[in-house]
């Protein structure tokens, strides 16, 4: 009983370990995290809280803000959904099928990670404008892409695509082929096997990919500004409205929208964590 004290109280926070360096690594992590991320974000929250609950709800309940948030979330949701579906198909094709140039395609999937958003933006605007390579045929069909919500949607699909593919792909690699064989031997059709045996364990990864693509799309700015029409209530997204509020010298308005978006980023990450811990319980892996 006499050896209680320091080691005991510390172990409440941290399980003892033979590995050294915890205080240093942990302390550094917290300091750096605090300086770069928490204090600046804290300044944002502080500034927003000085508006008061009334002020904040006033900013947010503004019709134009509401519609910008609606457009941002609606389009991001749609883009993430499309990415989740096509991401699954692409990942399946890349893992299971062989075709010429597969390795090249595999590498190309990560392009949106590496390509600066502004470059993507001017390239997409050039392609989808009525005089662009894709915009021209689309215009002949009477479809306007650039400077409409459709243009924003295209940019958001672009930035979110790799998340959807890359979260599902490793799990497809790890699927035990024997299970599929057993399912086939027991008389299931291929479609039944895919739907009832292959798909369920992939669900958490698909959801995670969806959430990541969504989180990225909601905040996207660089690639969207070149292709969005910025028409209030139609094609004005929340990040652009923050910039517009700033340029109107309306700091309270900018801060209010920013805090809402921050809260939503945080919530999205929590949801991803929930999906993963649910998956760990249900399937034994993330």
């Amino acid at each position: 009983m006499s050896v209680r004290g320091k080691s005991q109280t510390r172990s409440r926070f941290r399980r003892p370990s033979a590995i050294p360096g915890f205080p240093l690594a942990f302390g550094y992590t917290l300091t750096y995290l605090g300086l770069i991320v928490l204090i600046p974000l804290g300044a944002l929250v502080l500034r927003a809280s000085s508006l008061g609950m009334m002020g904040l709800s006033g900013v947010i309940s503004d019709e134009r803000v509401l519609s910008a948030l609606r457009i941002s979330f609606g389009l991001s949701f749609a883009a993430a959904l499309l990415n989740a579906i096509f991401g699954l198909v692409v990942a399946w094709v890349l893992v299971r099928y062989d075709f010429p140039g597969r390795k090249l395609v595999h590498a190309a999937v990560d392009l949106p990670f590496a390509l600066p958003t502004a470059v993507a933006g001017i390239a997409l605007a050039a392609l989808y404008a009525p005089n662009g390579w894709i915009g021209q045929p689309l215009a002949a069909w009477g479809i306007k892409a650039a400077y409409t919500p459709l243009g924003i949607f295209i940019a958001l699909v672009f930035v979110g695509l790799p998340f959807a593919v890359r979260t599902v792909e490793p799990l497809i690699v790890e699927i035990d082929r024997e299970i599929e064989e057993v399912s086939a031997t027991l008389g299931a059709t291929r479609a039944q096997t895919l739907w009832r045996v292959v798909l369920p364990p992939l669900t958490p990864a698909i959801l995670t990919g969806f959430a990541l693509a969504f989180a990225r799309a909601v905040g996207e700015y660089g690639s969207v500004i070149f292709i969005a029409g910025n028409i209030p209530y139609v094609s004005e997204i929340a990040p652009i409205l923050i910039v517009i509020r700033l340029e109107e010298f309306n700091y309270a308005g900018a801060t209010g929208i920013a805090v809402v978006m921050l809260a939503i980023s945080f919530a999205t990450l929590l949801v991803i964590n929930l999906i993963q811990s649910w998956s760990r319980r249900r399937f034994g892996y993330v």
């Binding site: 399980r15 995290l33 974000l41 905040g219 700015y221 990040p239 978006m261």
Partner: peptide
Amino acid sequence: KFHFKGKSLLITLIDLPFSVSPVVAGLV
């Protein structure tokens, strides 16, 4: 390498800048 309380919160906080809009990052 260590087990401690609040680890998943710490990971979430580290992930946060990834999902914060770049515009918000500039604004702060």
